[in-house]
Design a binder for these strands. Structure first.
Lengths: 192, 192
DNA sequence: TCACTAGTGGCACACAGTGTCAACTTCGTC
DNA sequence: GACGAAGTTGACACTGTGTGCCACTAGTGA
């Protein structure tokens, strides 16, 4: 990695860390971009050269998850039933979270507890759903336009995931993997 | 309704109608509040006395649906299985839409197609989910905190609903009720 | 006629986000 | 080491959202 790239990464990290520090004891709404930029020692204009919006500082950690998700689904064995394949695909989240457990939880709590951030997350989820739906339709060898099943299955999978994630953010003692398994079991009853 | 109230309603209607007119051939992002206010013949300041945000002009039509949803669920017979009760509860949407079919579809299309509006809708759905979860837990006579099933069932119901709604917005020939039934059938397989 | 109230417009302000430009750093090339 | 291209930055200006405040007006009742 070149010097310029490392410098860029440094500023980026400084910015996110400063943002998290401020958010921790002010809320998200109460923290201004000027404060985050000042705390990181850069100008407001520079902030927007690293992040597209105020929300992006927090949401960024799930930026390239879209590609990972579609890759994950196509990596699952073709014989696997949809519900299992989807559950395993959504493990990219738990895997990513596992790299920085305490930070992930902190971010998730903030995200779930802040309407503006939750909205951005859900907005992004819509695009993930679309890609996974086409992927699932392909492996089910059906056309997602007349056949609603792929879209519904993906939506149900995310419904289970969101429930697990929300609970995980609320309950510090909970384990995300356990919650995920429980939610998928409830969402996809044994018969399916 | 008093004169003052009717006047207020008049301004409100004028404002939403003006907004829809503008949105129809500009986008949502491209339309400013100044334009909407000017088109309705009021000041920008007055706009914010009727709507909390730019999004609210469009999203408003699902404002008191939260209460209707929880009322709807508690009105369902106790013996009814959760999946059926939830599907019937979500009919408040189709019922509401049925009052102004063409307008509802227009609004839904705009909503589904505009990230900012979709985000607001999903944000609101989160609160609906919470209230329906407590309601469903009560009728299942279980505690939603350790028992994840109520939350998951509600989430799955909305997953089915969203899929139906999205498809309905995309396909002009489709019937929302038919789509809803199909999505619920796919989300809650006969075994459950 | 005199308050009282609700609705309104106008003004100022804070903040998010974008375009532009001049200054500066980095890096490869001669 | 000098030089120019390319990338990074700060400063400024500007649009647009959303809010607080105050003065004005119209209707309402005493």
């Amino acid at each position: 990695m070149s010097l310029a790239e490392r410098k860029r990464q440094l500023v980026r990290d400084e910015l996110t860390e400063a943002a998290l520090q401020l958010l921790a004891f002010q809320g998200f709404e109460e923290t201004t971009i000027d404060q985050m930029a000042a705390a990181a020692g850069v100008s407001r204009r520079t902030f927007f050269r690293y992040f597209q919006s105020k929300e992006d500082v927090i949401i960024e950690f799930l930026s390239d998850l879209g590609r990972q998700l579609s890759d994950g689904l196509s990596a699952r064995p073709a014989a696997e039933p949809p519900a299992v394949a989807l559950q395993q695909t959504l493990r990219v989240f738990t895997d990513t979270f596992w790299e920085h457990p305490e930070k992930s939880r902190r971010l998730t709590k903030i995200m779930v507890g802040t309407p503006a951030l939750l909205a951005r997350y859900l907005e992004r989820q819509v695009t993930w759903r679309a890609t996974l739906t086409t992927g699932l339709a392909a492996r089910m060898s059906t056309d997602p336009v007349p056949d609603l099943r792929p879209a519904v299955l993906v939506a149900v999978a995310f419904a289970a995931f969101d429930t697990a994630l929300t609970r995980w953010a609320e309950d510090d003692a909970a384990d995300l993997d356990t919650l995920l398994t429980a939610c998928f079991a409830a969402a996809f009853p044994p018969a399916s």
